[in-house]
């Protein structure tokens, strides 16, 4: 076994000079979609290249260079996610439902959905609608925003998100539910019924 892996190592040469030209944009896109912050995405890409360079001798050629680099980037993103999960991600969410007492699970009075004015004219896609939606998503706690974006905007499979973020499916649906009730309220207050 040792012999085989030694052989493999000798055969695999990483073309590190070409990394940035070949993969920087792909990796940057990959990161930006997931962390929704261009500066942070650039940092993560840079960290990934550094880490890749340091552990280049561990590359066994079982996957392509790009796949290997992406797997490092994935770890970096999860690490970032863990960090926000332990601090900012825990930020208190404004609940839409009573969470104890005899009314548990019922709508909080001030959060009850109101009917919307001029619905048809308010749903025409335009730049204003887009930027209002973006600012409502940004107002979500970071973890909720992340999961909502991955599921709804990037349309990832549920299992994929769960695997990447290390959460269960039912966990994911609770997060999606909370994100969407918050978003609904935010859009109601700032777009539909101003």
């Amino acid at each position: 076994m040792v012999f085989i892996s030694k052989m493999a190592q000798e055969q695999v040469v990483l073309n590190t000079d070409k990394w940035i030209d070949n993969y920087a944009d792909y990796m940057y896109n990959y990161a930006v979609v997931r962390v929704n912050n261009s500066d942070l995405a650039k940092d993560l890409v840079q960290d990934t290249f550094f880490a890749g360079l340091k552990s280049a001798k561990n590359f066994q050629g079982k996957s392509t260079e790009r796949t290997w680099l992406i797997s490092i980037l994935k770890r970096k993103i999860i690490d970032h996610y863990r960090k926000i999960n332990s601090k900012k991600g825990q930020a208190e969410v404004r609940m839409n439902f009573y969470d104890d007492g005899e009314n548990e699970g019922n709508w909080l009075e001030e959060r009850v959905p109101q009917s919307w004015d001029n619905q048809s004219e308010k749903t025409i896609e335009n730049q204003e609608l887009k930027s209002q939606l973006e600012s409502c998503i940004d107002a979500l706690p970071e973890k909720y925003g992340l999961v909502f974006r991955m599921k709804t905007i990037q349309e990832f499979e549920t299992e994929e998100i769960c695997k990447e973020l290390n959460i269960t499916a039912s966990n994911l649906w609770v997060i999606i539910h909370r994100a969407r009730t918050q978003l609904r309220k935010c859009m109601e207050d700032n777009w539909f019924n101003i």
Partner: peptide, 20 residues
Amino acid sequence: LLTKIYKGHAKACKETKVCM
């Protein structure tokens, strides 16, 4: 209705590619 809006937004986002 919101899902329709989100989907429209998703489509627009996917079409934008970012580069360094």
